[in-house]
């Protein structure tokens, strides 16, 4: 189950960092690289912003597994819950 609020916040963040045009939808199914055209430095900025905003630690090794928006949202949510527990 994807946290809709987190998804909306992360979608806004991704859109701003990667300068995604407003006519391109950012959905849970959107693939970060193939659909949204995100490159390595955008991805670094997205990860660093998520770490800072949500106080989570994102392992460098896990970044390669974050292929879609849903992957990103679920990962950040899980990390945030783990940190809170």
């Amino acid at each position: 189950m994807i946290n809709p609020i987190l998804q909306s916040e992360l979608a806004d963040s991704v859109r701003a960092i990667a300068r995604i045009p407003s006519n391109v939808p950012v959905t849970a199914e959107s693939r970060l690289v193939e659909d949204l055209g995100i490159d390595s430095l955008d991805l670094v900025s997205i990860v660093l912003t998520a770490q800072e905003t949500y106080g989570v630690a994102i392992d460098e090794d896990d970044v390669a597994e974050l292929r879609t928006m849903a992957d990103l949202v679920v990962y950040v949510d899980r990390r945030r819950n783990a940190a809170a527990a």
Binding site: L32, D39, S40, L43, E60, V63
Partner: peptide
């Protein structure tokens, strides 16, 4: 030839 995700991992490692 790295994918953007692999390259991002390397940049984050370098940052660390």
């Amino acid at each position: 030839r790295s994918t953007p995700a692999d390259a991002a991992s390397s940049i984050l490692r370098a940052g660390r």
